[in-house]
Design a protein around this nucleic acid. Structure first.
Length: 115
DNA sequence: TCCCTGACTGGTT
DNA sequence: AAACCAGCCAGGG
């Protein structure tokens, strides 16, 4: 798995552009990986968004990574650790609701930002 | 530099 | 509903 990287002289990398977009998602809203990729100008590179979030440093950033879920309205599984559970708790704390099948209603909680 | 991988997605079968 | 699959892109070996 790739690591976080900052380009020379603070030049913007794709990861940074992704993080910048994610920072614009307001509390109480969620965006999909594909949506973030498009807003960041990365076309359909949804997978790259997942990578960029995985590469976030553990501390010192203000990126609400929990607000990015998949197009099915569900939290993507990572295998191993239980980060998914933490993500769900963080979202519920912001008012996001999950149905009995662990899904978020994107029509109701989806972010209508970006353009 | 080539090759593989992956917190994904939308269309087809 | 579910499996398949080609696109997508940068990082690391």
């Amino acid at each position: 798995m790739p690591k976080s990287r900052v380009g020379p002289r603070g030049k913007s990398t794709s990861y940074e552009r992704i993080w910048t977009v994610v920072r614009r998602i307001p509390a109480g809203r969620v965006a999909t990986y594909g949506q973030v990729a498009r807003v960041a100008g990365l076309g359909g590179a949804a997978r790259l968004v997942g990578y960029a979030l995985h590469a976030l440093p553990e501390k010192g950033h203000e990126v609400p990574w929990q607000r990015v879920i998949n197009a099915q309205g569900r939290i993507s599984q990572r295998g191993f650790d239980g980060v998914e559970r933490i993500q769900r708790r963080l979202l519920e704390r912001e008012g996001i609701r999950f149905d009995a099948r662990e899904k978020v209603d994107l029509a109701r909680f989806g972010w209508r930002g970006g353009r």
